[in-house]
Amino acid sequence: MKKLIILCLLFICLFCCKKKSNNEHFVSDEIYNTITQSVDGIHKDISKTDNVFYVFNRYDTLIIMSSESENILRPTYSVQKLGYFNYKNNKIIITKPYKAEFDIINKKNKLKSINNDLKPPYYDGNDYQKGMVYKIIDLNHLKLIEEGNLMKYFKPMAEYEYLPPPPPTDLK
């Protein structure tokens, strides 16, 4: 009997010590871990200066794209944003899914609201679409397709055609 009690206490201790996940936004921890690891990987290998990240969910694809500032690149100012969360001093903005095969957003998520009416700042041409692309096999399995330059994935589409704002004029 004493051995049974010790064994039960050991199992209870193991379950209580389980690592707590910070995932309050997505339906699976694998999606959350992939996004946060991609942010870390982009900082390490692709661009150390970017601190705004966008998460796109199109069909069976998950795209994590980085930018130097909000709403400056073509796909970022023309798509509707659901909300954002912070991760290691980075702003991760979740965009509205486009014909998604998998619903990755938790219905009771804790995303902070974002203003979708912000006008994009003047684009100086230094930033470009970069990040990581994953194929979603299922909600617990993702496969890296490409990393680095993602410009070929963001070609203009008729449904997203909005004219960018004119450059600021300083005629003093």
Rank of each mutant, 00 (worst) to 15 (best):
K96T: 11
K81N: 07
I12D: 11
Y84W: 01
P167E: 04
I64E: 03
L14C: 03
N140I: 02
V39I: 15
Y98F: 14
P121L: 07
M157L: 15
L62N: 05
L14V: 05
I5K: 12
Q37H: 05
Y87N: 07
Y162I: 01
N86A: 10
I31S: 08
F102L: 07
F15S: 15
I12Q: 05
G125D: 06
H43F: 04
I104Q: 00
K99P: 00
S69Y: 14
L62C: 03
N90C: 15
K3I: 03
A158E: 13
L7S: 15
H25R: 00
I137P: 06
I137S: 14
G83Y: 05
N57Q: 12
D45F: 09
F26I: 06
M65I: 06
I12F: 13
F85I: 09
C16S: 10
E161M: 01
C8I: 03
I46M: 02
D50E: 10
A158G: 03
I72F: 04
K108S: 04
K19E: 14
L62R: 00
I145R: 03
D117R: 10
F26Y: 10
F154D: 02
C13Y: 13
D60E: 10
I63C: 07
N86P: 07
S69R: 12
I105C: 10
L142G: 07
D117V: 00
N33I: 11
T95V: 08
D103P: 03
C8E: 12
I94Q: 11
H25F: 10
D170Q: 15
N71Q: 11
T169G: 12
L62F: 11
S66G: 12
V79H: 04
A100W: 05
S38D: 14
L4P: 01
E24L: 04
D124V: 06
P168G: 06
I63N: 02
L82Q: 09
I35F: 13
I94P: 00
N116Y: 13
V133P: 02
I145Y: 05
M157R: 14
I5P: 01
N109Q: 13
P168W: 02
I63L: 10
N22F: 04
I72L: 11
C16K: 08
K107L: 06
E24W: 03
G125N: 08
V55N: 08
L139P: 08
K99A: 05
D60L: 06
I35N: 03
F154T: 01
L150I: 06
N109Y: 06
K107A: 07
K48P: 02
N33L: 12
Y77S: 00
Y162V: 12
K2N: 14
N126V: 04
G83T: 07
S28Y: 05
L150V: 03
E30H: 13
L73D: 14
K143M: 11
E146M: 13
E159L: 09
L150C: 08
T169E: 12
I114A: 11
Y32S: 06
L163M: 06
S28L: 10
K112P: 11
D60Q: 08
D45G: 02
D45L: 11
Y122Q: 15
I5A: 10
K96Q: 15
K152R: 09
